[in-house]
């Protein structure tokens, strides 16, 4: 590295480890070590108050895989991500493109559109109850004016749809902020050139904006998928998984298994199964990030 001409090997040879190691040890202690315990518990018969009473091989895994509730939560999570992420990406991209045009007050719009990302998700879910409630809910009331009646929180599909709408409200801002950074880093010379041989605005966006912002957008998409698969707060605060367990996402299911029923064995096995299911996605994510991090 350029900072180290002279005697590269000696300068800061100990110092650099003094700086780095505490953080490494911290992450090992509080993330990777717990993960090893998760693997151990997934094979164990855990009884509350007694701890591990024995190892039961793959029984926890078999129980989880045979559970309808588990598969249902996987399906809800998959639908949730499959619907919300594409919408967020498209809306976030369009919003970023419009703000990036540099209209007067664009900065004000930027500030407002980026804001939801900093809001507390459980609070948004909780507020969502008052938005989608059949009695006095804002969304319900507005739709009523148009003569549309949607049973938001009383049906499974309505509940999931409401949660997805809130998710889109909350997370579009994330795509927006990242894509905007990508778009604004495109040199204005390129815009000047593009505008000369494009017939209209859309061509500039399709030929210049989208291709050049694509690498950044990929990162936004991957991060959204990874975060989306972990989703808990918005849908859980909105519907608490109901009616019944019909709108329960994976994280909520795992959370309840662990915290409410103290079924640590199955809770752990569930987590491992989930990680295996999304392993391919995680691999793609790491490959992309590795390229970018340099």
């Amino acid at each position: 590295m350029k900072a180290m001409h002279g005697r590269p090997a000696e300068y800061g040879a100990v110092f650099k480890y003094v700086l780095l190691l505490p953080a490494v040890l911290w992450v090992v202690a509080f993330t990777f070590a717990p993960l090893i315990f998760v693997i151990r518990y997934s094979f164990a018969n855990y009884v509350l108050g007694m701890g591990i009473t024995g190892y039961i091989g793959l029984q926890n895994y078999a129980d989880v895989l045979a559970s309808d509730r588990f598969w249902h939560s996987i399906m809800v999570t998959a639908i949730y991500v499959a619907v919300s992420v594409p919408v967020e990406v498209v809306l976030g991209f369009i919003a970023a493109w419009l703000v990036n045009l540099g209209a007067p007050w664009a900065r004000g719009f930027r500030t407002i559109i980026g804001m939801p990302l900093f809001t507390m998700e459980v609070a948004i879910g909780y507020l969502g109850v008052t938005l989608f409630s059949s009695q006095g809910g804002l969304v319900t009331a507005v739709l009523e004016l148009a003569g549309i009646e949607v049973p938001w929180l009383s049906t499974p599909s309505g509940g999931i749809a409401a949660a997805i709408l809130l998710d889109i409200w909350r997370w579009t801002s994330f795509v927006f902020i990242i894509v905007l950074a990508g778009l604004s880093s495109i040199s204005s010379d390129l815009y000047d050139a593009a505008i000369l041989d494009a017939r209209n605005h859309w061509q500039v966006m399709w030929r210049l904006g989208i291709p050049l912002a694509w690498p950044v957008t990929t990162i936004a998409i991957l991060l959204r998928i990874i975060e989306g698969l972990k989703v808990f707060a918005i849908p859980y605060a909105l519907t608490t998984g109901g009616p019944g367990t019909s709108t329960e996402v994976f994280s909520a299911m795992d959370y309840l298994t662990t915290v409410q029923f103290f079924n640590f064995g199955q809770g752990s096995a569930m987590g491992i199964i989930f990680l295996i299911m999304v392993a391919a996605l995680i691999t793609v994510f790491f490959k992309q990030m590795r390229k970018r991090l340099g």
């Binding site: 993330t31 717990p34 993960l35 808990f232 909520a252 795992d254 995680i282």
Partner: peptide
């Protein structure tokens, strides 16, 4: 570690 769903490491943390 950010790819780990938080619910997964809840047990050992607890």
């Amino acid at each position: 570690q950010r790819v780990l769903p938080p619910a997964v490491v809840l047990v050992p943390f607890y």
